[in-house]
């Protein structure tokens, strides 16, 4: 019969219409209640009919990995050095940024003129940013993260859409709050909840303490002990001393490397100038 297909299709439309309101009739308008379960069911795979989100009264909370614009992680207020940047101004985020919307000014020590691992200024032009998340993915210090705050509409872009360091900085607890799982994973990888440099330093300190303790323990060791035992004690001490020396050496080497790098950069610039 001609028109049967149309009627069948209209049946589907009617079912959709009924499905949308079936819930209301069966459960007494539960979709307007604040219960979490209802919301999860309505936004999940079991939803029937239209499942409108009543924004702004209710909002689909975004998942952990959601990325909007980036922000910088700083220490919390109750931290021993509060407000300190996690960023070491290494520049990887600005290099890996596809549309090149990140500007970083590396901090320098005014006394020596040497670079210090802190950004003096940090800018992100969110009119260029493409929310790709590479900066967060490739940051070796977990210092830049993708924010979940998408409510950023403004009436004037020139004054608000270049985010400076002040605007970008958010405490670590904020990151913990919006992405607990990811933050935990990253902390596991770093070896603690602190910034990776702090962890390294602590480890170094602990090593040094262990060394000192071992040193203290070595002379205290009773003299008439068998030579074999004495050797056994002496060996780790020597090792610890070596470790400490190598750490110092490393620092020296690091400074040298940095200086070399600076010189190379200057040369490069000079060459470019020609």
């Amino acid at each position: 019969m001609y028109g049967l297909g149309i009627l069948k299709g209209l049946g589907v439309t009617i079912r959709h219409f009924i499905d949308t309101y079936k819930d209301d009739v069966l459960y007494g308008f539960r979709k307007y209640s604040k219960s979490q379960d209802n919301f999860a069911v309505r936004q999940g795979t079991q939803a029937t009919g239209a499942y409108t989100v009543q924004y702004p009264e209710e909002k689909v909370a975004v998942p952990e990995r959601f990325r909007f614009t980036p922000f910088l992680v700083v220490n919390d207020a109750d931290h021993e050095s509060p407000g300190e940047d996690w960023c070491t101004s290494c520049g990887i985020c600005s290099k890996v940024c596809p549309p090149q919307c990140i500007w970083i000014v590396r901090g320098t020590d005014p006394a020596t003129g040497r670079p210090v691992p802190q950004p003096e200024a940090f800018f992100i032009d969110i009119d260029i940013c493409m929310n790709c998340g590479f900066c967060a993915e490739f940051c070796p210090f977990d210092a830049i993260k993708m924010d979940h705050d998408y409510e950023m509409a403004s009436y004037d872009r020139t004054s608000v859409n270049i985010h400076d360091k002040e605007r970008l900085s958010k405490p670590f607890s904020y990151w913990m709050k919006i992405a607990p799982t990811t933050a935990t994973e990253e902390a596991d990888a770093r070896g603690g909840w602190e910034h990776s440099d702090v962890i390294k330093e602590k480890k170094k300190k602990a090593d040094a303490e262990a060394k000192a303790a071992a040193k203290a323990a070595a002379p205290a060791a009773p003299a008439p002990v068998a030579a074999a035992v004495g050797e056994a004690v002496a060996a780790p001490v020597a090792e610890a001393v070596a470790v400490a020396e190598s750490a110092e050496d490393e620092e020296k080497k690091k400074a040298e490397r940095l200086a070399k790098r600076e010189a190379a950069l200057a040369r490069k610039k000079a060459n470019k100038g020609d």
Binding site: F39, A40, E58, A61, V62, I178
Partner: peptide
Amino acid sequence: KDIPDRIRSTANLMNDRIRDY
């Protein structure tokens, strides 16, 4: 990244509607 174990959104940004599957 690997597929997460749970499709979860946490309560933040002044909204209290979360999902967890």
